[in-house]
Amino acid sequence: MKHFLLTWLATAVALLITSRVVYGFEVKSFVAALIAAVVIGLVNGFIRPILRFFAFPITLLTFGLFSFVINALTLWLASGLTPGSGFEIKGFIPALLGSIVLAIVSSVLNYFLRVVE
């Protein structure tokens, strides 16, 4: 349970940092980031595996680079599922750039969380 809460908080912080770096990727408050982290987790748990299954051939052809597009689509979908919550992505390009920045920031934060534990 402790690991789940730390990961949830780290994802929320990563979303806030990403919103400061990427134009068009907006998170209004920490509460909005917490809500967005839950929705992103649910989308990644239920919809992303389906997208990855159907996109497997093109992912192979692009040597895995198409996974960035899948990540961007799932982020964009999560943004669309939370209207009025303070989490908004204004277009595909901000979603793509945001997914790259979010992956980097989340990796760094999760690394430090593992070191602390």
Rank of each mutant, 00 (worst) to 15 (best):
M1N: 05
H3L: 10
F4P: 01
L6F: 10
L6E: 03
L6S: 08
A10M: 09
A10P: 05
A10R: 00
T11D: 09
V13A: 12
L15R: 07
L16Q: 12
G24R: 11
F25S: 02
S29I: 07
A32W: 09
A32P: 10
A33E: 11
L34F: 12
A36W: 13
V38I: 15
V38R: 01
V39L: 07
G41V: 03
G41K: 06
G45F: 12
I47D: 03
I47N: 06
I47V: 15
P49W: 09
I50M: 11
I50K: 08
I50D: 01
R52H: 03
F53P: 04
F56E: 10
F56G: 02
L60D: 00
L61Q: 02
T62W: 08
F63I: 01
F63V: 00
G64Q: 03
G64W: 04
F66Q: 07
F68T: 03
I70Y: 03
I70F: 05
N71V: 05
N71F: 08
L75V: 06
A78G: 04
A78I: 01
G80D: 09
G80C: 10
G80R: 09
P83Y: 11
P83Q: 11
P83W: 10
G84R: 13
G86A: 12
F87S: 12
F87A: 13
F92S: 07
I93F: 15
P94F: 11
V101T: 08
V101E: 00
V101P: 06
V101I: 13
A103Q: 03
A103L: 12
A103P: 00
V105G: 02
S106E: 05
V108E: 02
N110C: 03
F112C: 00
R114G: 11
R114S: 11
V116T: 04
